[in-house]
């Protein structure tokens, strides 16, 4: 089976007015299915840009990026949307729950944009929330939940379309350490259930949950180590 993510000499250049800044300077990276990996780096190292590329939120300037065997470079915007919708679940530092929608509606969000609508979306969302222990709150609005609960809802949302990859960007950045470890344990549990998980963080304690740490510095991968 081919790897889930395969990057070869991926470069990303941003144009800032007259100048252009090369943020990623030749990344070679392979992420196998079923892995749980952490991408570590200080801010400005290019780790967020790398995450955006892995998550198909953006495309490389040059190089090759195969996601599940499919070339991402050159895909149209709509195809990227479809790819994200079907294959990637995002968890962000600031949760990004819709404030005016209920917990259930937030979890259902990815199902709205599915190419072929499936029956039983609501049952699945309720089931996910039940697994995570929030079934009592499905009709609450996010502002009535604690940070940890909000992030758990966000994880449910990420899992809604049953993606292959869970991509978490500083998922515990706004949480206290006890809640952070709950969230991390949840991500590990999802990995054990077969999801490929990539965590982007600057925090070694968080990176320690992964069984592989990819360090990035000044736009290049400086160290890859597996536990």
């Amino acid at each position: 089976m081919n790897p889930l993510c395969l990057m070869e000499d991926v470069r990303k250049t941003f144009r800032m007015g007259e100048n252009s800044v090369e943020v990623l300077k030749g990344i070679d990276l392979t992420v196998e299915r079923g892995e749980i990996a952490a991408i570590m780096g200080v801010s400005g190292s290019g780790k967020s840009t790398l995450m955006n590329l892995i998550g198909c939120l953006d495309v490389p300037t040059s190089g090759r990026y195969l996601f599940a065997g499919r070339e991402v470079l050159g895909l149209a915007d709509d195809s990227l949307s479809e790819l994200r919708n079907a294959n990637i679940g995002f968890v962000f530092q600031s949760f990004y729950l819709l404030p005016y929608a209920t917990v259930l509606e937030n979890v259902l969000l990815p199902s709205l944009y599915r190419e072929r609508a499936k029956d039983g979306a609501e049952e699945r969302a309720v089931e996910l929330l039940r697994l995570i222990g929030l079934e009592e709150r499905i009709h609450f609005r996010p502002n009535r939940l604690s940070g940890g609960e909000q992030q758990r809802v966000a994880i449910c949302r990420a899992l809604m379309n049953d993606p292959e990859l869970l991509l978490a960007d500083e998922p515990t950045g706004q949480l206290d350490s006890r809640t952070a470890s709950e969230i991390m344990n949840l991500l590990v549990a999802m990995n054990e259930r077969g999801k490929t998980v990539i965590i982007v963080t600057h925090d070694p304690a968080i990176a320690a949950y992964a069984n592989r740490i990819i360090r990035i510095k000044d736009g290049v991968i400086v160290d890859e180590q597996a536990d």
Binding site: S81, A86, L109
Partner: peptide
């Protein structure tokens, strides 16, 4: 933020 999350879960520009 809302637009961003909608786009990341697969909403197209349309």
């Amino acid at each position: 933020g809302e637009i961003g999350i909608r786009r990341s879960v697969g909403a197209k520009r349309r």
